[in-house]
Computed example of a mutant assay.
Amino acid sequence: MAQDKENRERLQKVLAQAGVASRRHAEQLILEGRVSVNGVKIPALGHKVGTEDYIEVDGKPVQRSEKLHYYLLNKPVSVITSVNDPQGRPTVIDLMKEVPVRVYPVGRLDYDTSGALLLTNDGELAHRLMHPSYGVEKTYRVWVQGPVGISALDNLRQGVLLEDGNTAPAIVERVVCGVLKKSTEKSKSDRLEILEVTIHEGRNRQVRRMFAAVGYPVLKLERVRFGSLSQGNTLRPGAYRALTKEEIQELRTKAGL
């Protein structure tokens, strides 16, 4: 019996790990009387549950995973970062069919953006990694028609005014400046420049909007790093791998867990 007690965890933590909500939001759900265990509503914090307990939120069963899973996916373009899509387009979950448990994407990469995407069933870690207060950095490789002027680079580095407010300062580095297309004149409009930009915010289509705001619409966008995770050259588009114990611990440390 003592062993059973040792294996029991606080209800709000279990809800967070199941991806129902962040731990703070889970606490609010409990206080609002929306959570029940084995058919009994739990009106206060402090309740602990074991693997044998049946949990419901708003009358719907909570699917619990006995083991937490973490995967890094190299998301291809033309794939939706979603669990399902009403329009029937392929989703990142379609690429993860052989994973033994249901995992969820951490943050988003838009339809035309490729690169590093974390998927997990660790709801609490996912919530923290997406929250700007933890400052998780994301690095993108950006293809634009260049060359990009010094003033535009300075604006990106200092913060760009968008319709939803100023962005935080970004780290921007030039990577390659070459020929975009065959041309006899090799005018400025025929130059392709590749830059790497690192941000810690997660606004919708933020990198694309930042570059458009300084006069350089993005031609191609790839996320090459998420926090401490880098896909490197090991993952082809659509492929994924499990995270190592060291990578998981580094992410959890960054998220204050």
Rank of each mutant, 00 (worst) to 15 (best):
L257H: 11
L219Q: 13
V106Q: 06
V176T: 14
E173G: 10
K182D: 10
D58P: 05
S183P: 09
I194C: 04
D110M: 10
E56L: 01
E98K: 14
L45G: 14
G227D: 07
S78F: 12
Q3R: 14
K97S: 09
A2P: 09
L73T: 11
L72E: 01
G215A: 01
V37H: 00
Y54K: 14
L195Y: 00
R64S: 03
A126E: 09
V83W: 05
D85C: 08
G149W: 00
L68A: 10
Y71S: 08
Y71V: 14
T184H: 14
W143Q: 07
P105F: 04
Y134L: 02
A44E: 11
G33Y: 01
E196R: 07
E98W: 02
E32P: 01
E27Q: 13
N84P: 03
R24E: 09
R89G: 12
P90Q: 11
S187D: 15
V37R: 00
K75N: 12
L125S: 04
K48L: 11
L243P: 08
Q158A: 12
L109G: 04
T167V: 08
H127V: 08
P100R: 05
W143S: 05
L109W: 07
K75V: 11
S78V: 10
T51D: 15
T81E: 07
V176F: 11
R236T: 09
L221S: 02
R241T: 07
K41W: 00
R64T: 08
K182Y: 12
S36Y: 04
I80A: 03
H47Q: 13
I199L: 11
I30L: 01
L229I: 15
A239F: 07
L180V: 10
R128V: 03
L229W: 09
R34F: 00
A21F: 03
N233H: 10
E27I: 09
V35M: 00
Y216S: 02
L229Y: 05
P76R: 05
G159C: 09
I150W: 09
V224L: 05
R23V: 03
R174T: 08
A168Y: 03
D122H: 13
D112N: 15
D112E: 15
N7P: 08
I42N: 04
V99E: 08
S78E: 15
K188N: 13
L229K: 06
V175D: 06
E247I: 06
K48N: 04
E185Y: 13
R8G: 12
